[in-house]
Computed example of a mutant assay.
Amino acid sequence: MLRMAICDDDRSDRERIHRYVTEYLEEKNTQAEVRVFDHPDKLIQECESFRPQVYILDIVMPMVTGIQAARELRWNQPDAQIIFATSESSYALESFDVNPINYIVKPVDKEKLFSTLDLALSRVQLDDKITVKVKIKGGLCTLRLDDIMYIDYRNHVVSYHMANGEVVSTPTLRIGFSEYMDENHSDQDFIRCHESISVNLGAIDKLTKTDITLRNRELIPVSKSRYTEVADRYMDFRL
């Protein structure tokens, strides 16, 4: 399902944009979970797990500007679609730093917002395109790739460690970890950081020569022999 976030410290602007978004979704017959925030700190904190595909952000807000918030959000969500809606046209040049798809000056024109949302949704990968089916005991389980922090291999069992702390495990396998990853995740953004651990590049918050800190604050090891490859892939992914 589509996920969207609106953040604006002005109540009337916030409610107007939310109303327009609701009208747009109804007109397009599109289901979405839309969350509304009145402060960028709340947005950043909650969206670490909520992870919207589309953001509509005011720029002039207390403590943290919309551009600063977008920089932090962009770090963990390089593919997110960002729309700025603001009363200050002077920030237009600076906003290009986070690659927004549009910069709308308030009062927000409904038709302009609708056309911008058309563009945003045309670029969004919805959940049916970013999921993986995992064989478990008794059947199959569908996991969102974005929610997978890392995958490990112990005693011929592959386990998927999720952002919410859940662990999803396969039955006992007859193949090794390398073969399993090649068969199931060869075209996805996973990298072996240890002999028995493959990490989701999109889940990495911090990388050192010995450890990886994931966005759910979990710490996993990096083997010395694999650090250079992990660092190179991670930089390619971010840039």
Rank of each mutant, 00 (worst) to 15 (best):
F190D: 02
D79G: 00
T170G: 00
M181N: 07
L43F: 08
I82A: 01
D146I: 01
V230N: 01
S87D: 07
H156L: 13
L121A: 04
V124K: 06
E15M: 15
Q68M: 12
K106I: 05
T213G: 02
V134H: 07
D146P: 02
C7A: 09
G66T: 08
F37K: 00
M1H: 12
R215W: 07
N200D: 10
I83W: 01
I191C: 14
R71E: 15
M1Q: 03
K106N: 08
R51G: 01
D147G: 04
S122A: 15
M149C: 11
T131E: 13
L2F: 10
I220K: 03
T116L: 10
E88V: 13
Q188D: 09
K106Q: 10
I220H: 07
V105M: 10
E183C: 05
A70C: 08
Y24D: 08
V199N: 02
N216V: 04
G176W: 13
E111I: 10
P221N: 04
D38S: 15
R35H: 14
T210F: 10
N102E: 08
V158N: 01
L145R: 02
D58Q: 06
G66M: 00
L173K: 09
I204R: 02
I67T: 05
I44S: 03
R11F: 13
M1G: 11
L117D: 03
S198R: 03
Y153N: 01
E111G: 09
K28F: 06
T116N: 12
P107R: 03
H39W: 12
E48M: 05
L201M: 13
Q125F: 09
E179G: 04
Q125H: 07
R19G: 15
E15R: 14
L73K: 00
I130N: 11
D97W: 03
R51C: 06
P78G: 09
E48V: 11
K209G: 08
T116W: 04
K112Q: 15
Y180V: 10
D38V: 01
F96E: 05
T131F: 06
L239Y: 10
I220Y: 04
V134A: 09
R174V: 08
